[in-house]
Design a protein around this nucleic acid. Structure first.
Lengths: 223, 223
DNA sequence: CACCGTTTCAAACGCTTGTTTGAATTTAAG
DNA sequence: CTTAAATTCAAACAAGCGTTTGAAACGGTG
């Protein structure tokens, strides 16, 4: 039995109060957004007094900014940019990249709070967004564009590569951010069979390869 | 000069107070979301007393549900499902459909408050979502799937058609919901040239046609 | 121990929120 | 006009919020 008093769950203890607040805040903001998260909730989760957040961070808004930064820093540290063995085919890299992105965005169970917080920031940008884009999103997006460059044998312009890259991101994005609506539009058994990172990655990759002429067209399915 | 008292703008008068509240609420909810919109703001915009919203709708949550319904009903009435002349090629229908969707989602200037409210509901579903999906989204999505069915000469299964349909929606969706981040990732001049409904519809349509083998691959651009 | 800067805490403050109230005003029918 | 229902209004209410306060508890140093 640990040291918490009430029935409420508590964030990983054995840590600095500042770190506990940052972690608790990240989880709460990821779950409920900035406005719907109360400092009292965060402090309960972190097992600290309400005044602690003002002591360490000054104000709620600053805490939010810091927790977004904390989220993508932690994420970058734990999961560095993907690399591949020298001989890997571009198509294989693409499938790997997309599968990876979908795993992060959908999770085999549920996305990590770090990813959910970052995606919330993408949907509703605040002051924390610019840094998130430069330090986390752009590097990943650049990797994707480089794969596409290889795939098209350097025949496409950077602008075209970016456009195709966005098309790929858009598809992943939909399944994350509009997942509930997708679940209403698609029959349940189809969801169960197809709606997992692996199957979706196969589809999105195939769609892209076919569009680039690196695979037979989609309407002629290969099994 | 009209009848408003303060400097605040007012929703189209010459209407039922109930209608004025519904319209004002829709605009405010679309702009700021449920939690960040205050009943007082709505009532100021509608030129009614704060008590009126409770008199007509009981509670804020009910007003929200009603205003989402109001939004998609109005939208369906003003812009019925698209239809095409008999001989129209499927590829032409697809371009028309995608262009139409992008115009609604991005707007030549800015999307209407009705669309913004609906897309907010897609991102963060509430009780109003199910009806929105069944009455508005599903009919449109079905039209898209039918076009794709024509395009593939009936060779694709319904599940495949839906998957491709979602891929198309996902791309449009990204430009709407993550527009700010896209704007940070892409060079400004590229945004200016390409980031409008017409150009994006061309790209998304071409991407799809190429993937289905109904057009030369994307990496071999046709000008 | 005595001292002092740092950290924690319960309590309260001031403000905004959704909602209610009870009286005033308008509307429509007899 | 009279009357009663429907509608509008200014004011208040209770609850929740972020933030502040001032004292208590802690921790290292001499």
């Amino acid at each position: 039995m640990s040291t918490e008093k009430s029935g409420k769950a508590v964030v990983d203890s054995q840590e600095d109060p500042r770190g506990r607040i940052l972690s608790a805040a990240g989880r709460e903001f990821a779950e409920k957004g900035f406005e719907n998260t109360t400092i009292r909730d965060i402090c309960t989760l972190a097992s600290v007094n309400v005044a602690a957040v003002n002591y360490y961070f000054g104000e709620k808004h600053r805490l939010y900014i810091e927790s977004v930064r904390h989220a993508h820093e932690e994420r970058s540290r734990q999961f560095p940019l993907p690399v591949w063995a020298d001989g890997t085919l571009p198509a294989e890299k693409l499938r790997g990249f997309v599968g990876n992105m979908l795993e992060r965005m959908l999770g085999f169970d549920k996305p990590s709070w770090q990813v959910r917080l970052m995606l919330r920031e993408v949907l509703h940008p605040t002051d924390a967004c610019r840094e998130l884009v430069e330090d986390y999103i752009r590097p990943h997006f650049t990797v994707l564009c480089n794969i596409l460059d290889e795939l098209t044998d350097g025949k496409a312009t950077p602008a075209e590569l970016r456009r195709i890259g966005l098309s790929i991101c858009g598809q992943c994005f939909l399944y994350h951010s509009a997942g509930d609506v997708v679940g209403m539009l698609i029959p349940p058994n189809e969801i169960k069979e197809m709606h997992n990172p692996v199957e979706l990655a196969n589809h999105i990759t195939a769609y892209c390869l076919a569009a680039l002429g690196k695979r037979v067209p989609l309407s002629v399915e290969v099994s």
